[in-house]
């Protein structure tokens, strides 16, 4: 299915959400076009992860609208399953299924949800494993893998669904330094070579500078500043962004 490039893949308008009295998302407007790589950053508690999770309906919102390819993202509506099948998400803690092998992790959804042919899905999954470099771990269980390997399996699991949009929720925050590189390399090639549309919550400046089109800076539930990566990290306009950039530079 070809999508009109003028229609944004993801569009959020006036999104508001509260956790009790805490206003976690305050009038958020965000647009992700096809092929865009958008990086969401900000201090912890700024609402960036919550915002990301509203994009596939894991977090319900209280007002405003979210549309994926023109379809409303509403977790209480039946249509949410069809939407989620086209949005891949990678979590901070990988969240692989511990009772299944890595290969089964990657094939279970296409087989049970998309009703695809088992052998075909296995082939696709194995070729993805080859690309992300975990093909030797295919028949192991997630518990036997390092964090970096698990995260790469998690990326492959999301990709076997052939998504239109990939969400990354701090994919490298739980990893040791040397493992961060191997995961980022996979993400960079996904953005560059596959032209994947991505929304990424991360503090990895290098990644943002290398592949992102926009950086969206959030603080206290609001979008404070948006801009191109080099410009944002090199010369932030607002004071809050300045303080933030100084802190992550150290």
């Amino acid at each position: 299915m070809k999508i009109d490039s003028t229609v944004p893949v993801l569009q959020m308008q006036k999104v508001n959400k509260w956790f009790g009295k805490l206003h976690v998302l305050n009038d958020i407007d965000l647009e992700v076009k096809k092929g865009d790589v958008t990086v969401l950053c900000g201090p912890s508690g700024s609402g960036k992860s919550t915002l990301l999770r509203t994009a596939n309906g894991l977090e319900p919102i209280h007002s405003g609208s979210i549309a994926f390819e023109g379809v409303s993202v509403d977790p209480s509506h039946k249509s949410i399953r069809a939407v989620r099948q086209k949005i891949g998400i990678v979590f901070q803690n990988y969240n692989l299924f511990p009772h299944l092998t890595c290969l089964e992790n990657a094939t279970i959804a296409p087989i049970t949800v998309l009703k695809k042919d088992r052998a075909e899905v296995r082939k696709t999954a194995l070729s993805l494993f080859e690309i992300v470099g975990v093909v030797e771990q295919a028949n192991k269980r997630p518990g036997q893998l390092s964090g970096g390997q698990q995260q790469r399996v998690a990326i492959a699991r999301a990709l076997t669904m052939n998504p239109e949009l990939m969400l990354f929720d701090e994919p490298t925050s739980a990893l040791d330094p040397e493992m961060i590189k191997e995961v980022l390399a996979v993400m960079v090639s996904l953005a560059r070579d596959d032209k994947m549309t991505m929304l990424v919550v991360t503090h990895e400046m290098g990644f943002a500078k290398e592949v992102s089109n926009h950086v969206v800076f959030m603080d206290a539930g609001q979008i404070v500043e948006t801009g191109e990566a080099n410009e944002f990290f090199g010369n932030p306009k607002t004071d809050r962004a300045k303080t933030f950039v100084e802190q992550i530079m150290i």
Binding site: N56, L58, R81, A82, V83, R84, Q85, I87, G88, I89, F91, N93, N95, L96, F97, I108, A109, T112, V113, R157, A158, M161
Partner: peptide
């Protein structure tokens, strides 16, 4: 809870 979320995020039905 993360296991449920992972399954939901892959578009699985309640039964699956």
């Amino acid at each position: 809870k993360e296991q449920r979320e992972s399954a939901d995020a892959l578009g699985m039905s309640y039964y699956t």
